[in-house]
Design a binder for these strands. Sequence first.
DNA 1: TGTACATCAGTGAACGCGCGTTCACTGATGTAC
DNA 2: TGTACATCAGTGAACGCGCGTTCACTGATGTAC
Lengths: 186, 186
Amino acid sequence: MRYSESHKAETHQRIVMEASRRFRRDGIGATGVQSLMEAVGLTHGAFYAHFASKDALVEEVLRSIAREAENPAAAAIVGDDPIRSFIDVYLTPLHRDTAEIGCPLPTMSLELAQRGSPSPETDHLVVDRLDAFERALARADASDQSVALLASLVGALVLARSVSDRALSDRILEATRRWLLARASS
Amino acid sequence: MRYSESHKAETHQRIVMEASRRFRRDGIGATGVQSLMEAVGLTHGAFYAHFASKDALVEEVLRSIAREAENPAAAAIVGDDPIRSFIDVYLTPLHRDTAEIGCPLPTMSLELAQRGSPSPETDHLVVDRLDAFERALARADASDQSVALLASLVGALVLARSVSDRALSDRILEATRRWLLARASS
DNA sequence: TGTACATCAGTGAACGCGCGTTCACTGATGTAC
DNA sequence: TGTACATCAGTGAACGCGCGTTCACTGATGTAC
């Protein structure tokens, strides 16, 4: 069946977006090509009309995430106190429970490294975030603080998503948030 | 072939220790039963003379890690300034590059959660660490600070292991270390 | 305007592979007679 | 002391399964005549 001119590009984009959500929610390894294509409404064979391999999809998803400014993690770098806003949005139960539209670093960064494909895409995600922090901070120790802040945020989300005790998970988010706001807000 | 009385327990322990290293270095999913048993010098079939399943091994490894005090992450909670010592040891290139004998949280915690088996073992690892911090801190905001400190340490190690640029990786460790020592040391 | 052909996104069976797991079997050693 | 048997850690072939990937094929539509 032949489709309208934009049809392929639209399908392509739907695959990328679904993968982007699943990679962040379930991880890359746990996202199979077959179930991914089923979710998009196609059979697995069609995948290779759009991507040379799963790794090629991973790269495109990373580029797509780096591009988008709509994810909660990126959207909050605005307002009077952008750092405070970012912390407030990042360390919420909502962000913890909706990994599929959240920051890719807590879920994907380590897996990308363990997969052994050291593409510079991960570095870009980290560097872009650090640059945004440094711009918003504009302090003497902005460089160190940006790094420490990002590490705290990512670590808190990793731990909050890892523990099974909901109360402990909430405590991790709230305590880190309080502590960071007392020390890191500009 | 029948073996000496302690032989089975020794083999059992060798499997647990090898798995403990591999789980932390490569991840649980990436550690296959076959290659694990090969590393111990046995065939894969023998695995089930020691463990009911791979999940049973995972649980025993977690218990083993919680028990051991020899890993660098736990060993440093001593001396005049135990928090400082801990930070100094945790945020080193050595710890980053020897995940197999390091803290299990950066590598294993998220994967345990993603596997969907919410055993309380992960929670114990986190709670034990937090308790140790609180005891060493003994300050008014010790609870918040313990959580934020652990989050920073875990996040920094996750990020340092994720980026491919070695200089950036070193910078993540050093900047977080400087920032934490200036604010979190007791 | 009507017919023949080219295009190509998507189909679905099949590929080799490694996974966790099962199980009939081996054979060196400890124990019983 | 010598022989027969029981034990059981470890062997290795085989299981079903899902993975990523390949490929001959389909068939609705756009284009050419």
